[in-house]
Design a binder for these strands. Sequence first.
DNA 1: TGAAGTGTACTATACACTTCATACACTTAG
DNA 2: CTAAGTGTATGAAGTGTATAGTACACTTCA
Lengths: 125, 125
Amino acid sequence: MNITFNNRDPVYLQVVKYFKEEIATGKLASGQEIPSRRELAGLLQINPNTAQRAYKEMEEQKLITTEGNSPSRITTDGRILNSIREELIQEAVEVFVQSIKKIELPTDELLRFVKEKYESERARG
Amino acid sequence: MNITFNNRDPVYLQVVKYFKEEIATGKLASGQEIPSRRELAGLLQINPNTAQRAYKEMEEQKLITTEGNSPSRITTDGRILNSIREELIQEAVEVFVQSIKKIELPTDELLRFVKEKYESERARG
DNA sequence: TGAAGTGTACTATACACTTCATACACTTAG
DNA sequence: CTAAGTGTATGAAGTGTATAGTACACTTCA
């Protein structure tokens, strides 16, 4: 569990995004068990209610499923699993373009900035 | 005054960003007068205190200056004016890269997504 | 059977932040 | 001088999030 919270966004949404990223990168697989609410709360040092809220959000988005009181699992719905990666990318690109478009920067210049920053960031990570 | 507010970010910060964009694109020039707090509030349909807070924020960032109760003006400090554009770009790129880096997308693929979205957006605007 | 763990739900509280309402001192135009 | 407009300051109100505590039905397992 390698996750650091920022103060800007709600914790439960950051948890949701974390799980989406884990799925998108294959670190969490179809049908895989995930920690219980209380266990996750302990791992991340957050309140159990916050963990519950994150899981509830993921249930509604059909990322995970829960039957009775069995441990929750990553969904086995292939369409959803495949769409998560695409969704994360499109969402990030959308937000970025909206935030930058008023500057009226030439396309090649913009791409150069992105390429530079992205590669320097990947070199570290 | 062409500005639409979202519900996610504080209004006063959206106002600040709006002014920065106007400066970065040359629509607001060095030393130019800007509306009074109450006048801006009327134009944007916001509370005068919210306008005040936006102006206060811009004062602190030295984007605008106010002497006595004369109308506030865009700063004439060339270094600041030149840095605003760069700042907006770098900030947007930084946020974008941070939000996307965990997906581990090949660089060329990422650039293709950005290029596509950016150009389709500029075609409309 | 009984204890522990599970998901779920509810209320109450605290805190940070934004926005709103009001007031005050000052300057300027009529 | 008076009235309107200006910038500024202060406290109240509203909103959303996180936390705390409790409760209940259910399953699992010793």
